[in-house]
Design a protein around this nucleic acid. Structure first.
Lengths: 343, 343
DNA sequence: GACATGAGTGTTAACGCTCACACTGGAACC
DNA sequence: GGTTCCAGTGTGAGCGTTAACACTCATGTC
């Protein structure tokens, strides 16, 4: 059994096969499939039975050709190995699925304007209905801003003055909160281990830090800079450990904070006894650093979901909103921070 | 300029528009686009010029409809927030792109058979030409094994006796190397902090550990078990810290090792002075743990790339190979391991 | 010089679906 | 009892591309 019934051949069944088996026209099959009204219940039942019997699957290419809708959205990601982008991607994918879309991903090596444009073009050639760009670098953002595309596009990451709809975390307010927290504990000033200069997230966090110090009348120390990696945090940490007047460091992300903690430990500076450290992101491991890291939590998954919501809204015909959704970060207090010590 | 030329309307230009502008038939345009032979150089040039002028993009749905090739591969991933899956995904995507494919991702919440089957079906409905399943759990693997699909499928993760082509890391040999290393340093035996019981990777690593102890005639301690997270490693670590006879622990992954290190530190047991610790994966942060973690490196990106290679080979018509590619892991020595101490 | 050859190009027919419209027949209306 | 109406269904024409084949000339062959 299975081979008999209608004379099934090798080829996949098409709508006409279902129609024939059910004794209706292809159009009625289409109606059933798309839930169109005006189909008598028993007809519908017969069609569904035929579909089951033949194990018929609609051909998405044919449908896309005529409806001009691919049911697919594109995502351009950067280093999707990092926790942030990975979590955003997951949020985007889940939201897309529940909105009935597929997600086509392309992950960039470098984030210069050309690469971004190429990636968007590629996705567009594939027929995606919209694109989410995870665009944390200034270069990418400006690239996105002047991207030529007939496809709706939403950016997620950071930055303000940009023509594209955008979802981001409140980097500045998070940095402000972290810095203020340290000042409130009695630290004269707070050093900063920043991310790469060409990332908007770095810039915003740095501005938040600097602004808070200036408002408080504290001196603004020279910024140390890393590349987000634990390795770069370690190297910066070795430099910082040599400075005599450091009592508090605000790191632009948790991974660099990890490296920093390691370097301080090796240099014999205790945390938080000698130096307090605050990170940013609240990656799942942060609670298990030595010592557990006080940090600023951002909800990457939510970020992704909101970005997708925005995109779907735009697809739904809502006028190009130029919205900028911002998600508030939240401080998570752990043991890497203390009041200013002896010295 | 730009608006003039042919009477461009709102709609996207199609092949016929290009043909008209270039003064050829649409078929010749198609030939140029697909690099078919027998097109005179100057004709080709005229067509290309028309394409540029109209900014024409071929419609992928129409092409897919007639060629029956979507140029898209599907990836079913599990928790793509974890470093391993994320890195594999990136490897897969890069390999796919350079092989001329798009990648459609779907990320699962739970990895039971039904979810996997649904995800594969969904991708198939979208028209993917092949599927990579990142399937690290036993349940997923058995689901994959009996998955009904007309689409070529490759699994990446672990496990042996399975009917599906598969790429995995040498979990057993990695675990053996780690355990032997500790025994060679004089440890009487090695404790094990395993991953979830229903993950093949856990099972293989546990077997490698157990086998090595048995071969060496060492006693096999009771296994502690976590869920891969640093949190679970911490909890297991609290239990382990209470045992008096522990001098070495082999952890099934680096994140749990991080939690373990934290717990041991809090319990006042020094690493490696009192207890040596080895992890598995070599995540980028492992070198900056306190102390830096000795671990077994697996190259997730390579894993993904190889999986995709296998899939593309299968698509290329190579007979269903039932190959099982295995990638050798490599030990990375750092400071979390030492000879057996005082006691 | 008739004839095969093949490079270069055009014509036509799918691919499998949805959309617009046409058709049927029974209920409702006066 | 004819007309209107509409639920329920079928027919035909695309959507934009590639595949198959047909055609037209130059060129070479004997």
């Amino acid at each position: 059994m299975g081979t008999d019934g209608t004379e099934t051949e090798q080829r996949q069944p098409v709508m006409a096969d279902v129609a024939k088996l059910a004794g209706v026209s292809h159009q009625t099959v289409s109606r059933v499939l798309n839930g169109a009204p005006h189909v008598r219940p028993d007809t519908r039942e017969r069609v569904l039975a035929a579909i089951r019997e033949l194990d018929y699957r609609p051909n998405s290419a044919a449908r896309a050709l005529v409806t001009r809708r691919s049911q697919t959205l594109g995502v351009v990601s950067f280093d999707s190995t990092l926790y942030g982008p990975a979590a955003m991607l997951e949020g985007i994918e889940q939201a897309a699925r529940s909105a009935g879309y597929f997600v086509s991903v392309t992950s960039l090596r470098s984030l210069d304007g050309r690469s971004v444009q190429e990636a968007v073009d590629r996705l567009r050639d594939q027929g995606v209905e919209g694109v989410v760009v995870i665009a944390p670098q200034t270069s990418a953002v400006s690239a996105v801003a002047r991207i030529s595309t007939s496809v709706p596009l939403v950016a997620v990451g950071s930055g303000d003055q940009i023509q594209v709809p955008m979802v981001s975390v409140g980097n500045r307010s998070g940095a402000e909160a972290a810095t203020r927290h340290l000042l409130d504990l009695g630290h004269r000033t707070v050093h900063h281990l920043a991310g790469p200069a060409n990332w908007l997230e770095s810039q915003d966090r740095e501005e938040g830090w600097r602004g808070t110090l200036e408002t408080a009348g504290a001196t603004v120390p020279r910024v140390e800079r890393g590349d987000w990696s634990a390795r770069s945090g370690y190297q910066a940490g070795l430099r910082i450990a040599e400075l005599r007047d450091v009592t508090a460091v605000f790191c632009a992300n948790d991974h660099m904070a990890l490296g920093l903690l390691r370097a301080l430990h090796e240099a014999g500076r205790s945390v938080p006894g000698d130096i307090s450290v605050v990170g940013f992101d609240d990656i799942p491991e942060a609670a298990y650093f030595s010592p557990p890291l006080t940090t600023v939590r951002q909800d990457f998954g939510e970020l992704g979901r909101r970005a997708l919501e925005l995109l779907v809204g735009e697809l739904g015909g809502a006028a190009r909103s130029r919205t900028h959704v911002q998600i508030a970060p939240e401080m998570v207090l752990r043991r890497s921070v203390g009041p200013v010590g002896r010295r």
